[in-house]
Design a protein around this nucleic acid. Sequence first.
DNA 1: TGCATAAGTTAAGAATTTCTGATTTTTATA
DNA 2: TATAAAAATCAGAAATTCTTAACTTATGCA
Lengths: 288, 288
Amino acid sequence: MQIRSLETLVRIAQVQSFSRAAELLNMTLPALSMQMKTLETDLRAALFDRSTRPPQLTPLGRRVADQARRVLAEQDRLTELCASDDGLNGRFNIGIIQTASVRILPRFLADVARTAPGADFRFSSGLSETLGAMVHSGQLDAAIITRAAPDLRGLTYDVIATEPMFIATPLHHADSSLNDLARSLPFIHFTPASGIGKLISRALDHFPAEPQGIVILDSVEASVESVKYGLGYTILPLPDLERYGEGQLHIRRHGDRPMSRDIALITRATAANDTWRGHLLGRLRAAI
Amino acid sequence: MQIRSLETLVRIAQVQSFSRAAELLNMTLPALSMQMKTLETDLRAALFDRSTRPPQLTPLGRRVADQARRVLAEQDRLTELCASDDGLNGRFNIGIIQTASVRILPRFLADVARTAPGADFRFSSGLSETLGAMVHSGQLDAAIITRAAPDLRGLTYDVIATEPMFIATPLHHADSSLNDLARSLPFIHFTPASGIGKLISRALDHFPAEPQGIVILDSVEASVESVKYGLGYTILPLPDLERYGEGQLHIRRHGDRPMSRDIALITRATAANDTWRGHLLGRLRAAI
DNA sequence: TGCATAAGTTAAGAATTTCTGATTTTTATA
DNA sequence: TATAAAAATCAGAAATTCTTAACTTATGCA
């Protein structure tokens, strides 16, 4: 069945004449006549009563024309969808690391629900490495990760935010040097399996003394809580320390140029993604 | 835009592979590939990211595929409509004479609403002649009229019911002969412009004596009421006399074979109408 | 890394479909 | 009844779409 035939049928139903319909549709009468005939054989239905000169729609024909209008309406919506494509249109599958999701997602989703009604975001969380692989294989359209990710070949890497890494100690260790800390408290190490964990391992190498003990946790919030309760000291991105620490721990920088971690958006580096990557980045940066 | 392209798009979205989709749709891979390319240029949209081997749908592409599913669903409804055509399907424009509408319509519509959900009847009332012309010209699909209609050339004429015409007099004239009546009471004549009115005129010619006075009314109900109140005598179809008379008038037949009027369905005598004429007739006869 | 294989794309020709113009048939109107 | 208008039919032309074959590109495995 041809969509064109449906358009023709609807026009005929409107003007009640083959010849006038043909005129309006810029086609010849025989073409129109044959379209209707093939439509009738396709549907195995008598749409017209041809015993009268402008052929009359049969009752069934009228109903078919009504339904044809509905088909065309849905088809119009389809073209509108593409015409109104502002870049953020469709279902986006996006991966995001745990830490980022807590801070970014709520504001991002609120913003986007307002300004990009054509977009539908599905988030799933995971570790930077996993997400990187999924973007690479096309399972995800994009991912919000932290650096130290896998190979970025074929991917774009756009920084959303840079967060300095600060050392956090219990309040009563505010004046202890790093050496003192290393001797008296265990170091709380966010899991080295994560992107940020790798940064922490590197930071640890530059400490003047190796901590006497190391506790590995896989939750930022749990790490901060542990420091609050005086169970150890740690190094984490400043925003996380501020968010969970709530003033109940002492924060210091290490060295002149503190280590920092990037939160970045990765996407496949293809032309198709160029249409929306910029839009997405803008909203993500605004949501930090 | 081709409906076929939408079908293949939906299939691709389902199986996530061009080659598998082509296989399932019984077409060659190049054909499928080109369909998608022309669809993309038609819509001026990038539906696929072709940098990966099974090309991935872009976010916009996913949305377009969703909408394509809707287009196809409406198209399916269209074919179903025709497949399930039991003869009474579509919008029927039907004319009906006033007298018949009162008695037939309610039961007919109730029956049809139950047994023919695909049909949608629009009734308009008028005189037999007018309705006959409208059926002839195709403005109406059918009409319920009374005989004595115009020329029936090109029309089918199927009797729905035959109603005998009886003479009605006030109760206190139950024993008066027609001659007595003609002398003492005016004759109440339903408008000769109508089909039934013409029959009445003919009946009047066969009366033994010409009534002294004639009152013309254009309402059956008003005629019967007038007789009830002793204002005259009349001749009308028996069912009407019983309906409005409610035992408050005297009814007699005239001659051995009383005159009768037919209520009939007329339609254009075309093949297209053969599919539903029988169905319609059956329900009308049941609704009497 | 590099080759082999699978998956898509491109290109040219064939087949189908659709359209046009001329002609015939049918219906409506004077 | 004649005439004009409208639609159907037919044959050939034009435009699509499809298929086969050659080519390119991604992916997986040694």
